[in-house]
């Protein structure tokens, strides 16, 4: 039971991280119709910015600021320099252009920051663990991650549904030409959404940095999982991203804990281990396949 609760919490924490990435990506796709592979690179830029800010100042808060600003600015730069020319082009060209940007970013980051992965410690105020249940002490850093994810989800909901910018975002997703015709500077709105998506990636990067390894290529791995989240949740919808992120987080984390055990009940140990390892890494893709069979547009697709 304790194991189950702990794994469920881990799933929640992983889901929080996936939501930070997926919400920005799905907004960018929903509004601008662009498939942006560089999204994972924003996450990496955020993690590296944070690690080096913390290394030189020692303050985690400065690290957060550096991640938000670094990743946000890089996202704006990418939008202005490359992506804005691709809005009306086929998805194929968007894939190719942003793929080129990934290769560029990976190499540039390794040239600037060096090949050795930087280390980032858990900040003092998030060290230690809290007793959640008798017999279950859960790391404070992970609790912080879950809380951050929840706050961002509420914040995004408020932003999209109860502000003027949010109204424009929704309108832009429905009919960009009409918004443009009504005198709204849609170009600025696009850049803004891109920057917002980048900043959310940066936030995910700084929160993940003490828990996971910071390295070149960290962005792509998580990007592909983020795609799974978006396909499961429904492309273009923030609510879908939330549901998809939590579902994928849970399946991944509970799968890691229980699939090998379940297989060992029925199969010899060596076969169970090999098969288990494969099944664990494939579990979220199986989830995606099942969702697709039942609901090809995802669980909560955007309207229209």
């Amino acid at each position: 039971m304790i194991l189950f609760v702990e794994q469920a919490l881990n799933g929640l924490q992983y889901g929080s991280m996936l939501f930070l990435l997926a919400s920005g990506l799905t907004l960018i796709f929903g509004i601008m119709g662009v498939i942006n592979l560089t999204h994972g690179a924003f996450y990496m830029v955020g993690a590296y910015s944070a690690a080096f800010a913390v290394l030189s100042t020692g303050s985690f808060l400065v690290g957060i600021a550096a991640a938000l600003i670094g990743a946000g600015l890089y996202a704006v730069l990418v939008e202005v320099a490359v992506v804005q020319w691709l809005y009306r082009r086929d998805h194929l060209y968007q894939v190719l252009a942003t793929l080129g940007l990934i290769l560029f970013t990976n190499e540039a980051v390794s040239m600037i920051f060096g090949r050795r992965p930087p280390l980032m410690d858990i900040p003092p105020f998030l060290q230690g663990s809290v007793p959640l249940l008798p017999g279950l002490d859960y790391p404070l850093m992970r609790v912080g991650f879950i809380v951050t994810g929840a706050l961002v989800a509420i914040g995004l909901w408020a932003l999209v549904n109860h502000t003027r910018v949010g109204m424009l975002i929704r309108a832009g997703a429905d009919d960009r030409e009409m918004v443009d015709a009504l005198g709204v500077d849609i170009r600025r709105l696009y850049t803004l959404v891109f920057g917002l998506g980048g900043a959310l990636c940066g936030l995910a990067g700084v929160m993940a940095a003490p828990l996971l390894a910071i390295e070149i290529g960290m962005g792509e791995r998580v990007l592909i999982t983020t795609f799974v989240v978006i396909v499961v949740g429904g492309v273009g919808s923030v609510r879908g991203a939330l549901v998809g992120a939590l579902l994928v987080g849970m399946v991944d984390s509970l799968g890691r804990a229980y699939i090998p055990q379940l297989l060992q009940l029925s199969l010899p140990a060596s076969t169970a281990d090999t098969l288990g390892a494969g099944l664990v890494s494939a579990s979220i893709y199986l989830l995606m396949a099942i969702v697709l069979l039942v609901r090809p547009n995802g669980l909560l697709p955007a309207r229209g």
Partner: peptide, 9 residues
């Protein structure tokens, strides 16, 4: 990387 981006653009 940039070559691929330019090819796409």
């Amino acid at each position: 990387g940039p070559i691929l981006t330019l090819v796409a653009l």
